[in-house]
Amino acid sequence: MLSLKGISKIYEVGSERVSVLNGVTLDIQAREFCAIVGPSGSGKSTLMNIMGLLDRPTSGKVLIDGEDMGAASADDTAAARNRLLGFVFQSFELLPRLTVWENVALPLHYRRLDSVTRKRLALEMLGMVGLSDRAYHRPSELSGGQRQRVAIARALIGQPKIILADEPTGSLDSVTAAQIMDLFKTLNAQTSVTVIMITHDQGIAAQCRRRIDILDGRIVGDLTQAPADCAHD
């Protein structure tokens, strides 16, 4: 599903060259539920940006669903993000002026779908995350957990192959965080979407079937585990 082959990323800060990723090679299969774990500065966010086609590696190859994304233009990567990927962020990133359903439907706008279809699919997705009754509210009228559900619905509406979640529970209290994790697990099971979660939270990482540890730009651990149950504190 997602293949990284010898990914390196070097930033030039002034005359200094800072190596953030050093030859990361990684294969993630369809339907996997994995966590990429590392302390801040380990390179996990850069890795996520490269997997999410938001950044390009200095060297190495990114293949999504067999497609090499190395030579893709900005328009092509935008289309690939829209078609293949769904993003969930720590701070939700909902647009405050749009209603909940309009936020959910936004990816479909860039797929040039008409507004009737967009709305129908958005309401369906909201049903799936349990927020049908909030469709016409603004994000500011929702709780943090509800907002993240909206964001998840937005990530899923385009029926992507992979969901990339960057610290999705980082802004939530532990009870809500557990509910969000449950939602991810359910969706992973029901829709067969691949979930890749970036986290530094060991509790979250323990709930994922596969755990990839990253330190100083290298993969230092990759193990498949029996996922722990949600730790409600």
Partner: peptide
């Protein structure tokens, strides 16, 4: 900027 970044992440091309 954040809105622009988000829109790009969910598939807005530069021309969009």
């Amino acid at each position: 900027k954040r809105e622009i970044g988000l829109r790009m992440a969910i598939g807005a091309a530069p021309k969009d």
